[in-house]
Design a binder for these strands. Sequence first.
RNA 1: GGCAGGUUGCCCGAGUGGCCAAAGGGAGCGGACUGUAAAUCCGCCGGCUCAGCCUACGUUGGUUCGAACCCAACACCUGCCA
Length: 422
Amino acid sequence: MNAILEELTWRGLLAQTTDEAALTATLNDAPVTFYCGFDPTGPSLHVGHLMQVITMRRLQLAGHKPLALVGGATGLIGDPKPGGERSWLDAEVATDNVRRIQGQLEHFLTFGEGATDAILVNNLDWTASMDVITFLRDVGKHFSVNRMLDRDAVKTRLEGNGISYTEFSYVLLQSMDYLELRRRHGCTLQIGGSDQWGNITAGCELVRRVDGESVHALTTHLLTKSDGTKFGKTESGTVWLDPELTSPYAFYQFWFNTDDRDVINFLKIFSMRSQVEIAQLEELTTTEPAARAAQKALAQDVTALVHGAAAVDQAIAASAALFGRAELADLDRDTVFAALNEAGLVSAGEVDGETIVDYLVATGLMASKSAARRSIDEGGAYLNNERITDEAYVPGAADWLHGEFLLLRKGKRSIAGVRQGS
RNA sequence: GGCAGGUUGCCCGAGUGGCCAAAGGGAGCGGACUGUAAAUCCGCCGGCUCAGCCUACGUUGGUUCGAACCCAACACCUGCCA
């Protein structure tokens, strides 16, 4: 087996390949141009996309050439998912999303003119100008509806709430991408999540039927968590890569809170650490679970990759200040400010009212005054790390840290601050 | 275009005239125990000027002392037929 395939296998990434022997030979033979597509369904990539992005990076480091495709066209159509029809993505929003996502991808791969440098492509470029007759004759003719109906997502939809012709056609567009990228860039490998297997192999088949060339597919396992919940979500929603949508602090916390049972798998998938290093961390997780060395390594690695080393330092400092044992009074003003700023800081001027309930609501920590009162009742609200018992309490001069900040907390780990003055 | 079924809180789903802010489950939140983990147990889970009031069961209008529940129209979804 080829070295990079072995590594992907060890990391638990490799789910399926079209023809392992042929793919191994191809990868050994020469640099391979490969692609992976991202549909612009949101304003940013999120941690769920990270697995593919990092896999692309691994392949690039192994000497292969990535084509990062953003689905300006496919995003407007929608890949059928079992649950039901997707909500319509406005064309303008899609265009904007494409631009944002392209910018993010540039962050993770090395782009340029060199042999293994990555190239950005957008499938709108070869789809928008295609006319219906050409589409139906040159592309549609190669697809059997009978086989399209066999796909799981489609079957589920037929048994459930049905599927529109729009989404049913999605696979044709994605297949066209493969054909086009092979012609334009000599692309002979497509990677994606294992849920993309059907779309990817359909592309392989189209290339074979139309151009008579044999191209490859490689899928990665879908990420599962031990507790059965979906990866990539927190109580506040999707964990985005855009620092405007998910702060580096929240991002760091997301990884830091990983379950013991998942942390080693995540390190294999998301970090560039070696087999030896990960084995050591695995050992530490068993012998000294409370230290959570593996979670720290994971959070630092991924945060550094996405937001840079400086953001890691800030996230660590903020976490230490907010969760540490240190007396709040002992923390210097700048540390408090940096920590609260990461956690989310509201200016006192924006607070409507003066009781602790008003502050809790203003920071967004509590959804409503009712919820705030309830939390206080339940003993789950804290001011400067001390439990609040009186919902009518009005913070006094002594409560303002350095005369400037209030530290508010809900439960153990939802934190926000209020800042006096401007 | 015809016929049938459907639209309930974040999600699923019960409720068919007063006892309904609406059963049950899931998700979520808090507490206890811990390690900012998991599991477990307990509590909470529309809003507010909170023993009361307001808003809510697709939309609008109607019947009624009283409607998520009955009637009408409309909108949307699904299926079957044309």
